[in-house]
Structure formats: C-alpha cells, structure tokens
Simulated assay, not measured.
Amino acid sequence: MTQTVLLSPEEMSASILDQLAWDDRVEAGDINVEVIGTTARLTGTVPSYADKRYAQIDAMQISGIMAVENQLVVEYPSYIGIPSDPDIQSNIKTILALHRNIPLSRIRIDVHEGVVLLEGSVDSQVQKEKVEELAADVSGVMDIRNDLAIVPTETYQDEGIAKSIIAAFIRNTSINMNDINISVANGIVTLSGVVHDWMTRRAAEEIAFFTGGVTSVNNRLIVRVGE
C-alpha cells in the first residue's frame, strides 16, 4: 500500500502552480499562489471568468488543500469588446435554454457591471454547478455569485438517499466503507469517520453531493495521513 505524504505549504503551492501550468484551460502566467495551513490563496489576473473558475478547481485537486480563497481578478484583453449587462444576461439565458435538464423558469439572473447573481432553485447540485459552468463561459462575465438553492421536485426518502450513497461508495475503489459513517436527515448528509488521504475525503463529499435528493453535505471526515 502506498503511503500518502503530507506536503508542506511550500510544496502545496508548487504543486498548484504545476497543476495550473498543466491545465490548457487556464492562462496561468499572472497567477500567484500562497498556501496558509490547508487554504490556498489565488491572486493576480486572468483573461476570463472561466479561467478563474478552472484555477480554483485545479487548486482543490491538490492533496492537503481544503479551501481556496479565489482573489483572482478578471481582466479581459483590450481587443475584446465587453457586452453590456443586459446582453450578458440575455446570452446566459439563451445558453441555459439550450439545456433541457435545467429548470430555467425557476432561475433568476441579474447582472451588474459584469457580476452575475444566480438566484432561485434547481433540483440538484449537478444542476447548480452546470448553471454556473455555462454562465462562466459567457463573454463579459467578471464574477458569479451562485445563490441557487437545491430544492428537489421529486420526493426522496432519507433511507433511500443513504442507500444510494453507500452503493456509490462501494463502486469506488478508493473508498473503504468501514471508514465512513453516513447519516441523512431531510436531505442533509453528514459524513463522519477517519480516512487516510485528502483525495478520499474529497471523493466521498462529491459522491454524496451528486446523489439525487441531497440538498447539502456536512463533511466531518478526519484525515489521518499514514495510518
């Protein structure tokens, strides 16, 4: 069995920079990284909101990182014409309307100086993240505040949600079910126990979040490296 090595803040910073340089979705030349404890702070500039979003996703992939302070500033190149706020709003609605699994009628979109506010409700975490992903690719978006609530229109029983999560854990070879306790109350999932690396902790949380009927996840899993 391979033992996970606990990285120092400097090593985590270097790993994030390597990840950003590897990712062709991100123009990382003007991104600075600082790690304090288990939190990565990203500063500098990027040429689009999509770059900003992908940079945060990349940082979260690094072992030991539990949170990201994304302070990146979007600066569109001077040769790109920036659409007006009404045009940005209209373009986001048009893109969302192309995806039949997104309940556009339940989503409110406001734009002020390129900052997009998403309000209303969707059925799942998958839909919530998809809406933000699609909006992020619209030209002129400077930032996104995703306040969409997860309100399933289908009725789910807590016991059924727990069984679905357990089945997904069993299918995942990196997760040992003996290490994790699962409780579900009114769609809110709580994960507790001890796991042996950060990737397992993150994988367990993502699986729980993407399970139908789940509205939020309390991840109380403790990482004890090397045990």
Results as ranks from 00 to 15, higher is better:
Thr4Glu: 12
Ser8Ile: 02
Glu11Val: 04
Ala14Gly: 08
Gln19His: 12
Gln19Asn: 12
Asp23Ile: 00
Ala28His: 10
Ala28Val: 04
Asp30Asn: 14
Glu34Pro: 00
Ile36Pro: 07
Thr39Asn: 05
Arg41Trp: 02
Val46Cys: 00
Pro47Ser: 06
Ser48Tyr: 06
Asp51Met: 01
Gln56Trp: 02
Ala59Val: 01
Ala59His: 01
Gln61Met: 11
Val68Asp: 01
Val73Asn: 03
Tyr79Ser: 14
Ile80Asp: 07
Pro83His: 05
Pro83Phe: 06
Ser90Pro: 02
His99Ile: 09
His99Arg: 09
Pro103Ser: 03
Arg106His: 13
Gly114Leu: 04
Val115Thr: 09
Glu119Arg: 09
Glu119Ile: 00
Ser121Pro: 05
Ser124Ile: 00
Val131Pro: 00
Leu134Met: 05
Ala135Arg: 02
Val138Thr: 07
Val138Pro: 01
Val141Ala: 07
Val141Phe: 03
Leu148Arg: 00
Ile150Met: 03
Thr153His: 11
Gln157Ser: 13
Gln157Phe: 11
Ile161Phe: 01
Ala162Ser: 11
Ser164Leu: 10
Ile165Leu: 05
Ile170Gly: 02
Ile170Thr: 09
Thr173Phe: 15
Thr173Gly: 10
Asn178Ile: 13
Asn178Leu: 15
Asp179Asn: 15
Asn186Ala: 08
Ile188Glu: 13
Val194Ala: 07
Val194Asn: 06
Val195Thr: 04
Trp198Val: 02
Trp198Cys: 09
Glu205Val: 06
Phe209Ala: 12
Thr215Arg: 13
Thr215Met: 11
Ser216Trp: 13
Arg220Leu: 15
Arg220Gln: 15
Val223Lys: 01
